[in-house]
């Protein structure tokens, strides 16, 4: 029952994506996996990086929230700094998710998280401490990560 909704959302987002985003579907796969790239705005430490985000829509989407993972390594308090790239986002928690929430809103929330990390609700305690107490050092490391991992367009893993 979710196909119509997903198609509609995809059509809207691929034609008029939110600022800094490109949205594509991997070839020969269902509508339930999306490849998303994000270029954070110049005002953030993550500029000029290119970040790959893999979004999976569960079969009972939109009743269950989408799952998003950063495929690009990211030095951020709310994103695990490993190959999993899990993200902690309030809007995606089951108790906060509403079926009427749109993917556009999720993307908006991710971009806001890049602009303004939430060190009080961290996935990476150490990075959160650094962000809070030694901002220049944090920014230096972000730059380093961006140069090392996020200078090329992201490579998405092959299908499931």
């Amino acid at each position: 029952m979710s196909t119509k909704r997903i198609s509609k959302e995809y059509a809207e987002l691929s034609q008029a994506p939110p600022d800094g985003y490109t949205v594509t579907l991997p070839p020969s796969e269902s509508l339930h996996t999306w490849h998303i790239t994000l270029r954070p705005p110049p005002a953030t430490a993550f500029h000029p990086g290119v970040f790959g985000i893999l979004m999976t829509l569960p079969t009972d989407y939109p009743f269950k929230p989408p799952v998003i993972k950063f495929v690009t390594r990211t030095y951020h308090p709310n994103i695990t700094n490993d190959s999993l790239g899990n993200v902690c986002l309030a809007i995606l928690k089951p108790e906060n998710w509403k079926p009427s929430t749109k993917i556009a809103a999720v993307l908006e929330a991710v971009r806001n998280l890049m602009i303004e990390p939430q060190p009080d609700d961290p996935l990476e305690e150490r990075i959160a401490d650094e962000y809070r107490n030694d901002r220049p050092e944090w920014e230096k490391k972000v730059k380093f990560h961006v140069e090392k991992y996020a200078s090329e367009p992201p490579v998405f893993p092959a299908g499931p």
């Binding site: 029952m1 009972d60 009743f63 269950k64 089951p94 509403k98 079926p99 009427s100 929430t101 809103a105």
Partner: peptide, 30 residues
């Protein structure tokens, strides 16, 4: 919202999540 979606939403809340006293309107932010 359409009845099917409403039913699906309530079923998930009640059956899967065990929620009852605080089931909100499915609308974002309501």
């Amino acid at each position: 919202y359409c009845v099917d979606c409403y039913r699906q939403y309530l079923k998930q809340k009640i059956k899967d999540e065990g929620e009852a006293a605080r089931i909100q309107c499915p609308s974002d932010g309501c």
